[in-house]
Structure formats: C-alpha cells, structure tokens
Design a binder for these strands. Sequence first.
DNA 1: CTGAAAGCGCTTACAG
DNA 2: CTGAAAGCGCTTACAG
Lengths: 337, 337
Amino acid sequence: MQDVARFAGVSIATVSNVINRPEKVSAATTEQVRAAIAELGFVRNDAARSLATGTTSSIGMVLADLDNSLFVDMAHGAQQGADAVGLRLLIGNAACDMTRQDDYLRLFDEARVGGVLLSPMEDSLAGIERMRSHGRPMVLLNFEQSGADCCTVLVDNEEAGYVAARHLVETGRTRIGFVAGRDYYQPVHARRLGVQRAVRETGGVELEEIGTDGLGFEDGLAVAHDLAGRAADRRPDGIVAVTDEIANGIAEGLHATSAVQVPGDIAVVGCEDNRSARSGPVALTAVQLEGAAMGQAAAELLLEEMKTPAGEHRHRTVMIRPGLVVRASTAVPAPQA
Amino acid sequence: MQDVARFAGVSIATVSNVINRPEKVSAATTEQVRAAIAELGFVRNDAARSLATGTTSSIGMVLADLDNSLFVDMAHGAQQGADAVGLRLLIGNAACDMTRQDDYLRLFDEARVGGVLLSPMEDSLAGIERMRSHGRPMVLLNFEQSGADCCTVLVDNEEAGYVAARHLVETGRTRIGFVAGRDYYQPVHARRLGVQRAVRETGGVELEEIGTDGLGFEDGLAVAHDLAGRAADRRPDGIVAVTDEIANGIAEGLHATSAVQVPGDIAVVGCEDNRSARSGPVALTAVQLEGAAMGQAAAELLLEEMKTPAGEHRHRTVMIRPGLVVRASTAVPAPQA
DNA sequence: CTGAAAGCGCTTACAG
DNA sequence: CTGAAAGCGCTTACAG
C-alpha cells in the first residue's frame, strides 16, 4: 500500500479511501490510484485490515461429514444466505472427527470470523460455550444441544416420520412397519413418534415396530431376510425405514429373494433422501430433510445476530418442515395385482 | 494479551513467549500466564499474529463442485496431507460458478494463506496468474491448464480408458463399445485413446465407438434404446461408458426393455466411480479416479513449495494411476448362458 | 529468564 | 478532497 501510494503520488490514507470509500476521493485521484494498484498487482492484506477494523468479511462453517450429502446441502444453503449479503463462506470438514471439529472451531475463533455455523454429530457443548464466551455469533444446525446458548435450526423429525407413514397410508397400505434401531439418537426417537401419530390418526391401519441393531445397509438386509420368511398376511405391506441405508438394505434383501416384490408387495420409504444411499435396486421414496433450507435459515439467523447490538439479540429456534420425494419404491401396485 | 499480561504481572512479550516458545520461559511464569489465559478466556488474534509474522497456519482449497464426490475425495486427501504437518484446510465451494471460484481465490489471496489448492472446471489462467504473481504457492488438481506456472496433479485418463477396456477383455468380452460425447473435454479424448490402445493390443477384439450428444444419464438411455433394437450379433457385449451417468443410463435403459441383460448380454463399465451416480439398476463397475490420492499428492506438492525458498522451487506434474472397482455390472455370465 | 520498543499493513477520526 | 498520526494485537530481535 506504501508502494501504491508512492507510485500514485498520494498518501496511503488516500489509497485506503479509494478502496473503501471511493466517493470521498476525486475522480482523477481515484484513477491514478487504480492504475497504480493494477500496475503493481497490489492485494489488500486482509490480516491488517481485519486487525484495524476488527471485522472480517467471512463466516465459518464446520460440517460433521462432507461425505454425507445432507451436509453438502447445508453448505449450499448457507452459501446462498451468505452470498446475499456479500459474505464469504469458509468450510471446515470435521470428517466425523471431534478433535478436528474442535480445531476448526478454534481456527475460526482465532481468525475472528464474523460468525460460525456448526453442524455437529455429538455433544459439543464445550466448544460452543468457548465460542459464545468470546462473544462470537454462532448457530447450530440439525442438532439439539441442551444447554447451548445460541440459535438453532432443526428439521422436524417427528414430522418426517409422520410424512413417511402418511404417504404409505395414502397410497393404500394398511399394515405399516417401522424399522429402526434404538431411540438413542434423537432423530430415531422423533421419527418413531411421528410414525405412531400417523397410524393412530388413521382408522384400520396397524403398526409393527421392527428393531435393528444399527442403522446401516446390513441391518436392512437382516430385516428383509426375516420378512421374506413370513407368510404374506403376517408381514407389513408398507415400511418406513428410519434411514435410507436401512431402506435400501430391505429393498435389496427382498429383491435378492425375489419372493417379495418392492413396491408390489411391500412399499418402502426412507427418512433422509441421502444421495450417498442411492444404490438400491429400486429408486427409493424418501422424506427430504431439506438440508439447503436448513443451511439458508442458519445463515440468516447468524447474519441477524451479527448485526444486532450485543445484548439485544434473542436466540431463536427454527424448525424446518421436511418434504417428500416420491420414487419407485412406493409406487401403487397395478390394480389387478 | 495486554489484559493477560497485566493479570499475570508480566509483559506481553512474555505472554507471547509462553504461547509460542514455552521453552524460553521459566516454569513458574509459564504457570501464571497459563492461569491468566484460562481465567480470561483469551484467544490469540490470528489477524495480528499473521500480520506480525507474515505467515498463516492454513491453506485454502477451492473446489469446483462439492456435489460431485470426486471433489469431496480430493478434500479428504488434501486434509490428510495438511494434517500431517499441522496445517488447517479451509474449503471454498465454487459450486460450478466461475465468479465464485474467483471470489475464493481472491479471498485466500487477501487472507495470505500459506498456499492454495485449486480444482477448476474451466480455463482459469487469469486467476492462477494473479495468484502466482503475488508469489503465492498454488497447485492445480485434475485439470491441465496450459500456460499455468505451477505444480499439477492429474489422473491418467488414458490409463482409465485402458483399464476399463482391459477389464472387459479379461472377463471374456470381445466386442467392445466405447460410448462418449465429442472430444471437447480433455478427459473424454484421453479415455478414448486408452480404450483404443487396449483393443489394439488384444487380438480378436473389435471396437465400436458410439457417439452421444452429452455426458449424462439421458444420453445413456438413448444409447440403450439403439442397442436394444439391434440383433444380438450386431451389438457390443461389453461397453466402456466415458461417464458413470452414461453407464447408468445404458444399464437402466436396457433393464427397462428387459430384452438385453446387464451384465449377462452386455457388461458395462463407468469411468469415474462417482457416488452421486449410484442410482442404476445394477451396481456399476467403474474406474476409480483416486480423488483422495490426488488431494494428498497436491497437498504434498504445495507443502514442498511452501517450504522451498522462492526461486529454488521447480514445478512438477504428478500423474495418478486410476484403479478399478469391480461390481455387478461386469460379472462374468454363468457358464451355461 | 524477562521487558521495552519497533514494526507488520491497514483504517479512521481529525486537521488542513 | 487529501494527508499526518495514532492505533488495531501480536512477534521478535535486542538489551538488561
């Protein structure tokens, strides 16, 4: 900047003004300074700028796992929200590693970013409190952190279960199966409640809750094996699987035996619509967790907090309603079938 | 830091030393300072640090499209490389938008990151030159940028085509089809050459090159339609599709007619092994582009350049050999078939 | 082992 | 409209 000023024959204050408040500088001077900047290939030192102003033009986002498309969707949404106000979104991928998540939190804290978006996998109260105690705006995505003093964006998982089960009922299924692991994970519990509500609301529909060990493809296969061994009238004709992976495991397992057809004999719905799970034998109908909407809502909450004077901000929790993406796995059976 | 120094009854220089060179400070003093830091919740201001030292502890990575798992793989690899030397990886997602790509390049430049990893979609010479003229280390991934003055990591696309075709030949296929769009994209051209080489090397194998308009699922469907209409001896028994999407389109199209079986009548190989393309009716055998290996190699080249005195560094190009992931779409037909 | 002081490159009132 | 000067929060030789 020194060099630019010298080259253009002005003071460094003027150079700074040309960059930041061009309206305060005469056209002629502006021209000279711009020419000097171009000639010298000058790039403003952001560290110095942010030291002097105490602000940054970027916000940080720490994601639990980029391999999971839900988080990529969140990044898209947040990006859009940030773009709208000219902020840049920097992403740190924790890759399921809590230590790394903490590293990124610290990095963003030290870098004095304008704010942080965090989508954690596990309890992260310590990191959150550290951030908050430094007065840094922060919003949580897709995780209900008890005790956390910040805004949160959640998807309504109870509604997700409800929507999935409703869809089956509305397409004529009457014996609903809910396949899930234990209620240790918050979303599992919530989706179960939603399914139960949908069944309760509807006359003439039964619910069977089928337990699994885990939440993966293998668990779905095991369930399929069980189902295939039952008499036709002793098994569900519609299944809500708590994860896409389980859903695909079920579809694959049934497909392999070829004794039971999907969707002919059993319709299957997943609860996530995750791109990384699109490997099943039938395209999977799934509840859409609206990652992009979550990301955008989170960015908006963050921006709101960033521009609100400290002390006046009131935390909010935004609940996103899930959608439904209908595909082949719940197609209505042909009339004569 | 002022506050910490006052609180601990030492000078700020000592605080700085405790943080950065603890060995230069007596144990007792260190203890007091640490206590003060903990008590006050002090966080080093990274902007000031980087202004004073002229260095940063992070490197930037600009990715063309996080929705494409190849780029996520690259991020994983780069992360690993950066972790190994204690650098943090900051990700910017261009999301297929060249303007945004340029924004991130500028952001990282202004932030004076230690170096930048760029995986572009299109010619990005201007941005690269700007970066280089500021002396910032930079390495390119998965793109041959003519005129670019920096290290590059590429996957060997000629080899990818070769590996795919070899696999078909080795599993007994003798009439190979190569399905691709025009050679406008560098990788398409290279993969074609590889397929041709594999066929040329092998006796008794024919090659048919089938053109498509684009590189997507629809294009594959169209090819399937054509194929299904041919007599059995007039169509290939093994197909290399230049993209996974085309491959899945072909498999889906053939599956729908059910006149031609995959892999029974025709085996299909894709050339990318992209997770977002895993929606076909048969699990797809595909050449694996080794995104993680590319990312790691790129990080290593970057770190090498970062620690080499300016002027002494010599740019290199690293070529990664693709692998092969065998799945159902190229299973050998049962003997009696 | 510890402290006083200069400097990193910018921004921002404040004079002129 | 433009410039001189202080200050942002740290680091780093250099004395002591």
